[in-house]
Design a protein around this nucleic acid. Structure first.
Lengths: 254, 254
DNA sequence: ATACACCTTTACGCAACGTCAATGTCAAAC
DNA sequence: GTTTGACATTGACGTTGCGTAAAGGTGTAT
């Protein structure tokens, strides 16, 4: 079987430009050049291309692929493991990024609805100030990375509808919470209902629910001004009230 | 407060080159240029830089950031949402990639222990052949993407120890399965134990277990030659035997 | 006066190709 | 036999977000 660039390209699902590039950088040279200067590839080249594409699929750089396919003694297994590590790291970073974007979206949306833009700007500035760019990292350190990771992992699998449902639940929490706040009693029925809604809302983001984690998050709302602001912008004192309600709800108050 | 490039760069944690580049592409021009041609930045520029860096942190391209910071009426929220979509997609791809790498590592390790390298090479070639590069995608289409995503999402949160435990369980499955195969009875005690171990193993990868999904996977081992090969390389017929055992175990045989 | 840190513009380099441009070749249709 | 249309070739520039010289002017302390 002999192939020209286009045939091989079609078979492998890559462009002819790519094949010429691979020739250029020396990782896949054609078996021969015919009288008209056409690149002609044989079965060996097909195999090699398959190897190349395989590693490329895995995100290995062509530079490294070159080492892999040219050196026969290359330890592909070790390279794969190292690469695996890098991929996991990359995903971790990506997860943080996604969480941050989500948080930002939620914040801006909440803000735009209920506050003036000026303050928003000021707040956002403050957010970034004092090296808070490391947002996720900081939260990780403060409240343990497990919660953050749980949240991230759950989010992944969520469908649009689920996401919408979660958002609605979040709104419900806020509404019930405000009503409860009016009663002034965190142990009261309304407040406990708010705490329960909050648990349901959390369950959307976490794989497993525990009272401890729930209570921890509620405390976080009070400790971390970003979250405090999110709740208190509706009603000052709401974050503390929610924490108190959750503490009672979870029985973690003492 | 006025800043030269280096002072501002130091404050913001970026290089002077970056500042000159931002000037060049027009997303951050200095307040004025002094008599010697030096770039002088004022408080407004500091604020703007903070905004830019904020969005940059979120992975937004400078091109898009330009739109955000230059047009005051720009809908940053919508831009962020779009960006969010892209990030999710990216993570999906990354997950597939990671799954592929893990599978490859598992395969190579298993193979090296129990088969000659030649066959392995042939198999890998075959794997990629017939457009099977779209590995994950294909599996997704064939057996529903839910299972794949479940698997991915679970993997993320696993610790090293958990991973090791899962691998041991996998080995147990194989061992028990081989013993069971010797009896020839997929309904027998050993075979059912193997099926149960297999369920446990699956539970490592899936958030939720259902009989239907379990049976589906077992069928997949038979339908998909890649998996068939994985089991049958130890003992021809093992994949079919496991499927039969699981069908009985789950009661999905009919 | 000299050193030394700071500033400037210009411009190439990076990864992995995409995308013209200008031109030659092949098989089939007229 | 020629025309057409699909294919091939080699350049060579564009992409992103800067890093990294190079070659030179400026500011200030000694």
């Amino acid at each position: 079987m002999e192939y020209t660039v286009q045939k091989l390209g079609k078979m492998a699902g890559i462009s002819t430009r790519t094949l010429r590039y691979y020739d250029e950088i020396g990782i896949l040279k054609p078996a021969r050049i015919n009288s008209s200067g056409y690149r002609i590839y044989g079965p060996q080249e097909v195999d090699r291309l398959q190897q190349i594409l395989f590693y490329r699929e895995l995100g290995v750089s062509l530079e490294n692929i070159k080492d892999i396919v040219t050196s026969p003694a290359f330890d592909g297994s070790a390279a794969l493991k190292e690469h695996h590590e890098k991929l996991l790291e990359k995903r971790g970073q990506l997860d943080l990024l996604i969480a941050n974007v989500e948080k930002t979206i939620a914040l801006t949306e909440g803000r735009i609805k209920m506050a003036d833009k000026e303050k928003f700007e000021g707040f956002k500035q403050k957010l970034i100030d004092d090296n808070e760019k490391q947002y996720g990292k900081e939260i990780r350190e403060k409240y343990g990375k497990d919660a953050v990771e749980k949240s991230n992992s759950k989010l992944k699998g969520m469908s649009q509808e689920q996401y919408a449902a979660a958002e609605k639940l979040g709104a419900d929490v806020m509404e019930t919470l405000k009503d409860a706040f009016a009663t002034g009693d965190p142990a009261g029925e309304l407040a406990q209902k708010a705490a329960d809604l909050h648990r349901q809302w959390l369950s959307f983001w976490w794989d497993s629910y525990t009272k401890e984690a729930h209570a921890g998050v509620a405390q976080m709302y009070v400790d971390d001004e970003r979250f405090t602001a999110y709740y208190d912008i509706e009603q000052p004192g709401l974050a503390v009230f929610l924490r108190d309600a959750v503490m009672i709800y979870t029985g973690m108050g003492q």
